[in-house]
């Protein structure tokens, strides 16, 4: 079985089959680039992901392994379809996978899924964060995500006025 070594930003390495790794758009491109530039066709590709730490990379690989037989969703798929997939495709395993996670970890997982181009994982994690934001007031979101307002003077009022126009018919 052809393997690829994926190394996290903090130096932890994961040996993954190339078939599994290629379910990530980013890893697929990296493996193909390595093959083109390498003289030795048997050489094991080594990919360093400098923006993802081991804990998060492990979760992405764990999700990929669980979903290795699912059809691959194209990264540039229309968002309209993507949202539908997120709702329909979320299995009990996915819910159990995300349930114990702290919101900060989920957010890091979203950025990792986005960077590694894992559409299915991006869909379910974005959906989870969306559910934490939708229907909440500005102050509630600020509290949940520990955000501070840095608007000066009447900037906040100005933004509110701009918003009024955004979807006015």
């Amino acid at each position: 079985m052809a393997l690829v070594r994926v190394i996290s930003s903090d130096g932890a390495a994961f040996l993954v089959s190339q078939r599994l790794a290629k379910r990530s758009g980013k890893l697929k491109t990296e493996i193909e680039t390595f093959r083109k530039s390498s003289d030795n066709s048997e050489a094991q590709p080594e990919i360093r992901i400098v923006t993802i730490r081991a804990e998060i990379l492990r979760l992405v690989l764990q999700w990929l392994q669980q979903h290795q037989n699912d059809p691959v969703l194209p990264a540039n798929q229309n968002e309209q379809d993507g949202r539908g997939d997120a709702e329909m495709g979320q299995s009990q395993w996915d819910r159990d996978f995300l349930a114990p996670m702290d919101l900060g970890i989920v957010m890091e997982l979203i950025l990792a899924a986005n960077h590694l181009e894992v559409k299915g994982l991006l869909d379910i994690t974005c959906k989870l964060v969306e559910s934490k934001i939708t229907g909440r007031t500005v102050d509630e979101i600020r509290t949940a995500f520990k955000l501070k307002s840095d608007f000066k003077g009447n900037e906040e009022e100005q933004t509110r006025l701009e918003n009024r126009w955004c979807v006015e018919n």
Binding site: E130, I133, T134, R136, T137, V138, I141, R142, L147, K148, S149, D150, F151, E155, E156, T159, R160, E162, N163, C166, V167
Partner: peptide, 11 residues
């Protein structure tokens, strides 16, 4: 939701 998020802060 985007409209609400625009009011959170400048970033």
């Amino acid at each position: 939701t985007l409209k609400v998020c625009r009011q959170l802060n400048k970033t």
